[in-house]
Amino acid sequence: MALYGYARVSSSDQDPSLQEAELWRAGCQIVRSETRTGTSRQGRAELELLLQFLRPGDTLVVTRIDRLARSLRDLQDLVHELKQKEVTLRATEQPIDTSTAAGKAFLDMLGVFAEFETNLRRERQMEGIAAAKAKGVYKGRKPKIDPAEVRRLRNEEKLSPSAIARQLGIARSSVYRSLSDPGSKGPTSA
């Protein structure tokens, strides 16, 4: 029956050391941490590694549930996966312990609020972008593709669409799109 800790921060300007210290204080024998978004499980190698090592009777410990997942669906999937492995989930800063009925109920409530918070943040971001566009301040991302360069490489250097895509670091479909758009004069976002 081992305690495994998992710490996560969303961006490189955040520091997981406070979470790690809390997990060590909670008695974790192993603590893994990573810098990845919590809105998806994809690309979270440290979490996947921990999930492989967990055995029946073990406990996965996080400081807060939103360190594990920001989507209710991901949280429910993780809890189900842990239950299948006979592993409990515990949070040090919240009354969550999936070995108790109250802990399971609180987990579900916090999962709903974590997803709600993510959705609110996304709405505020979209409102900010809309306001910036209305003021003419927001221009979108910088152009990545220069259709004139794509056509030059095709016509003058006789490169194939695949070779053009490799040389410019873009998708082959973007090359075809640029070549089929005769009205395109300058860089486009694709």
Rank of each mutant, 00 (worst) to 15 (best):
Q94D: 00
E81Q: 15
K133D: 04
L168R: 14
D74M: 06
R121M: 15
V31G: 06
V62Y: 03
F53T: 10
S10Q: 05
S180I: 02
Q94H: 04
S17L: 07
C28K: 08
L51K: 07
L49A: 13
L82D: 03
I164S: 11
Q42A: 05
T59F: 00
I96T: 02
D66C: 02
S99C: 12
E34G: 01
S99K: 11
L89D: 11
T118G: 09
L110P: 08
L72S: 08
P147G: 13
S174M: 02
L47V: 00
L50P: 07
N155F: 14
S11V: 06
F53R: 13
G128S: 04
L89Y: 09
T88Y: 15
E93M: 09
M109Y: 05
C28T: 01
R177A: 11
A2W: 03
L54Q: 06
V112R: 07
S189I: 15
R36V: 15
P95G: 03
R25F: 06
L78A: 10
S174C: 08
R44K: 01
A171C: 11
G27R: 04
R67Q: 10
R36L: 10
L3Q: 15
L47G: 07
T92P: 09
P187T: 04
L78C: 07
V137F: 06
K139W: 01
V62S: 10
L110M: 15
L23G: 10
P95T: 02
V62P: 12
Q167R: 15
A102Q: 15
A165K: 01
S180Y: 07
S40K: 14
A45H: 09
E117F: 03
L49Q: 12
V175W: 10
G38H: 09
L49S: 14
V137A: 09
R64W: 10
I164Q: 05
S71C: 08
R55W: 14
L159M: 12
A163N: 04
V150T: 13
L107G: 13
A130D: 07
S10G: 05
R44Q: 08
R70Q: 15
R177W: 06
L68Q: 00
